[in-house]
């Protein structure tokens, strides 16, 4: 009865959170797996923020890795140069990314699909050059290091304290995903569903597409920047390597594999890709060949992404257990 009240989907989400919360105990604090899990949590947030933009608001953004990097550099540089404590530097990273997001959004959100992709990717490319060119401040290709870590008591948020760090990362993960979830189920999210289903009708009802897109673009840039700031505090470094094509491809593949516009598909995609990449590590040179081939194969067989598996499997289960019969009775 309780389950029925909060809805099946929410119950599943809660169950997922519970599993994530219990994992470190089940793994007996295995540092190696925990560090991979933390990476998956962070990529999961970035992929979800990106998906919010691309899957729900239908803004063809290629700039989220740039927002992520902006957030990371802001947090790292303010912490190092001005001695701002991590707890203030992390939100500051998010805010800076959001400001960039809004500026870029004002510039390009009236454009159509590919054109938005190009302008946002422009930010990505320009950022790379600015970081290398401004090496006196940004550290150039080497990046930013040497700032105070996020520390609580004797525990430091870093790969050396995986058990502690996992719960910090999980807390941030849950908070940010909750924000994304609320946006998807808010009037803004509904407006996007309306726009997707019937654009002329939605517009005639007074849905201001530009305004909503701008809001969502800003929020998702904020989340991307925030998680970027978390990333730099966890690893203790950010460098322009983050902007290279392989990582860009990986994050795109994460939320696309999970299922575009199917919350929480991006998170599932992030976990799958992160772990498969790790499992393939012994293949050395052949690692990314195998990863790419696996993604192609999976997509050709499950075109709607991993999140569409239940929908596609359900009819089979019903047939197998005779549920179809029950359904017919109900109707």
């Amino acid at each position: 009865m309780v389950v029925n009240k909060i809805g099946r989907k929410n119950a599943l989400l809660l169950g997922g959170v519970l599993v994530l919360g219990l994992l470190p105990i089940a793994l007996q604090g295995n540092a190696r797996i925990l560090n991979v899990l933390i990476a998956a949590l962070m990529w999961g947030v970035l992929a979800s923020a990106w998906d919010l933009c691309m899957g729900y608001a239908r803004v063809f953004s290629f700039g989220h890795l740039a927002f992520f990097t902006i957030g990371a550099y802001t947090a790292g540089l303010t912490a190092r140069q001005l001695g701002i404590p991590p707890l203030a530097a992390i939100p500051l990273g998010g805010v800076t990314a959001a400001i960039f997001g809004l500026l870029i959004g004002l510039l390009c959100l009236r454009l159509r699909g590919v054109y938005i992709a190009m302008v946002t990717f422009g930010l990505h490319m320009v950022l790379q050059t600015v970081i290398i060119w401004g090496r006196d401040i940004t550290g150039g290709k080497t990046g930013v290091t040497g700032f105070a870590p996020l520390q609580i008591g004797q525990y430091i948020f870093s790969p050396s304290y995986p058990f502690f760090s996992y719960y910090i990362a999980l807390g941030i993960f849950i908070l940010l995903l909750f924000i994304i979830y609320r946006i998807i189920n808010s009037p803004i999210g509904l407006a996007f569903v309306a726009l997707r289903d019937s654009e002329p009708y939605a517009k005639s009802l007074g849905v201001n597409e530009y305004k909503y897109k701008l809001i969502v673009f800003g929020i998702s840039a904020f989340i991307a920047g925030l998680i970027g700031a978390v990333y730099i505090h966890f690893y203790g470094i950010i460098s322009p390597v983050t902007l290279d094509i392989p990582i860009f491809l990986m994050v795109l593949i994460m939320f696309m594999l999970g299922g575009l516009g199917r919350f929480p598909g991006a998170v599932i995609g992030a976990f799958v890709i992160t772990f498969v990449t790790e499992a393939l590590r012994p293949l050395l040179l052949w690692r990314f060949v195998a990863l790419g081939a696996i993604v192609v194969a999976v997509t050709v067989f499950i075109p709607g992404g991993l999140m569409s598996i239940p929908e596609r499997v359900r009819p089979f289960i019903r047939r197998a257990f005779g549920r179809r019969h029950v359904e017919e009775e109900v109707s």
Binding site: L252, V289, L291, G292, T299, P303
Partner: peptide, 15 residues
Amino acid sequence: TALIVTLASAMALDN
């Protein structure tokens, strides 16, 4: 979906 497939193919073919 085609977008992700072409992305992943590009990654596989390059490597």
